[in-house]
Design a protein around this nucleic acid. Structure first.
Lengths: 221, 221
DNA sequence: GGCGTGAACCTGTCAGACAGCCGTACACGC
DNA sequence: GCGTGTACGGCTGTCTGACAGGTTCACGCC
């Protein structure tokens, strides 16, 4: 009987999920299997799984098992909690200053990542993959801002937005435009100009919003 | 054996805590007592408490019991997770637009609340009580913005800020100035002018930051 | 082939038990 | 009188074994 086992199991599970070892959508082993793997009783496993569920990482269904529903703990900002209007309204206030900060604090690593994403995006035709790359671009900028508040808030917003994926395909024709705007943002960040970076990000967001509105669809990225 | 009991117990506990029936700092009844009160087994109570803990509402200490540590689920933004710099940097980008939105969407209820807070603050001498009123003022504006994103983010930021309470007393001499600035913000909101409201909020935050910096202390409200 | 039945597996809950931590109160020694 | 130490009761942490009820799938019957 190891005291503290429950926390250890929780840490283990959470680590696996956040590291992607248990991808979103996958099914975790049964409680009994986990208990035997970690050499603890099923009670301990159940309490750990309860914590995972409370953190929004997993959902467990009677008779079926427990499934990974998110790879990161999404705090208070739960899916669908925000209206499209709220999201559209809030996003510029987070992303624009984040781009400005990124320009002031850019690291070579972040720049390399951004360049890589843009290059990859130019070659990519699959709309779903392009959406993922767009998400990666924006989230890298949040990281590059060096401010965890922006980083976290943006991650939550993006997660909420990801569930309005019906809009995705409608934006396929913006591919070239979006690539160009991303390029401008990256240029400004590379140049170390917060003003230009903020302005470029603001233009990009406005352009996306415009396109979405023209299409009469809920907002997306 | 009632199936779904665990969720019911969790809802009950969470409701009590959020409603203030179990104030922050208080000790919950023992697991055995809760089990008997809700007529479930201790396993069920333990799993519910695990969820509460994962949500950040409670902490349980071996041999002592479980204690309420927060009255609201604080998402990802956990105490101390953000540096003072991050918070100071992010706050204006949230609060300033929130004030602008509040001016555009103000309701009579919100206005009445804000007026009440200002009136109360003028009469209040106790620094701790004034801090609470200040928090209430800013959080009411977030509510009045009509945007849940701002509302939630601000609630989290405020919670994080609340733990830098050493700074509190240092700002006592700003009482009159702060009251005046709050008044200006309220005036602008009452007038329905987003520009004036945003500007007034920006001035207020800048003034507070200035005062804090002059005192050489970490930022607060 | 279609359909129903049952077995296998899974989660949800229960009851009882014991180990270890914590605070307190009582008794002992100084 | 005072301080120390010890024993005790209460609490959490974990374990074990059991049963109910949901889910899935394969087998066998029609």
């Amino acid at each position: 009987m190891r005291v503290g086992a429950a926390e250890a199991v929780l840490a283990e599970l959470r680590g696996d999920i956040e590291a992607g070892l248990a991808p979103v959508g996958s099914k975790l082993p049964s409680e009994a299997a986990l208990a035997s793997r970690y050499e603890v009783s099923r009670s301990v496993v159940r309490e750990a799984l309860r914590s995972c569920a409370a953190l929004g990482l997993t959902e467990t269904h009677t008779g079926k098992g427990t499934f990974v529903v998110s790879a990161r703990v999404s705090g208070d900002l739960v899916l669908g909690r925000y209206s499209a209007r709220d999201l559209t309204e809030a996003r510029p206030h987070i992303e624009v200053p984040a781009a400005g900060l990124a320009a002031g604090r850019r690291s070579e690593d972040d720049l390399a990542t951004l360049r890589g994403i843009i290059a990859e995006s130019a070659l990519e035709d699959d709309p779903a993959a392009r959406v993922a790359l767009d998400a990666a671009f924006h989230s890298t900028i949040a990281t590059a801002s060096g401010n965890r508040v922006f980083e976290d808030v943006l991650a939550d917003l993006r997660e909420a937005l990801a569930h309005q994926s019906e809009t995705l395909n409608l934006l396929a024709d913006r591919q070239a435009a979006s690539d160009h705007e991303h390029r401008e943002i990256l240029d400004a960040i590379e140049a170390g100009s917060p003003e230009r970076a903020s302005a470029a990000m603001a233009r990009h967001l406005a352009a996306v919003d415009d396109a979405v509105e023209r299409l009469g669809a809920p907002p997306l990225m």
